[in-house]
């Protein structure tokens, strides 16, 4: 083998290595970019793809089951999300659900929270929220003493 042939071989090995190295660098950067931007290729490639399971968490987050907003337990109706977004930041939805009031008293409760509990001005959402609360959480007539309900009967063993 003469010197020229050897030099040519070294050069082509060198070129090959350079290309390989370049590919590794590009792939690495591409991989990093993709991991950081996972939706990069989503639109034109994922459509119609069967072997990937898409879990729509965004939808689950505000899932409604049997007319109940699962995350909060509030009743599904006009004004639900306005109520969720404005009324469950400081206290849990359980406080809303267990209370029963007419319009006047729901309004008074909101005013009390605005005056003493740092509740913000509800703006145009206020009427929506109040209508939602009055319709879905109105007072129930209870009388002076209710009948015992939901009794779980069991045989007493002594």
């Amino acid at each position: 083998m003469d010197l020229k042939t050897f030099q040519n071989q070294v050069r082509s090995v060198y070129k090959l290595l350079l290309i390989l190295f370049g590919l590794v660098v590009v792939t690495s950067f591409g991989a990093i970019y993709f991991v950081n931007n996972p939706d990069l290729l989503e639109k034109d490639v994922l459509k119609g793809s069967n072997n990937l399971i898409d879990i729509p968490l965004e939808a689950n987050y505000d899932k409604i089951e049997n007319g109940i907003h699962v995350r909060t337990g509030l009743v599904e109706d006009v004004g639900l999300m306005e109520t969720v977004n404005n009324c469950t930041n400081c206290h849990s939805s359980k406080l809303v659900i267990q209370n029963r009031m007419n319009k006047e008293r729901w309004v008074a409760t909101i005013r009390w929270m605005q005056k003493t509990q740092n509740l913000w001005d509800l703006g145009k959402n206020e009427d929506v929220i109040i209508d939602y609360l009055v319709k879905n959480y109105p007072p129930e007539k209870k009388g002076r003493r209710e009948v015992l309900t939901n009794v779980e009967w069991y045989m007493l063993k002594e």
Partner: peptide, 28 residues
């Protein structure tokens, strides 16, 4: 594109897809 995604999918599977739809700051 397709080839590399396929490779990714086979390696990491649906986890990437799961991640892509997860709202920021959302805990399962």
């Amino acid at each position: 594109k397709k080839a590399s995604l396929g490779a990714f999918a086979s390696i990491i599977g649906s986890e990437i897809i799961f991640g892509s739809n997860m709202p920021i700051g959302y805990k399962p």
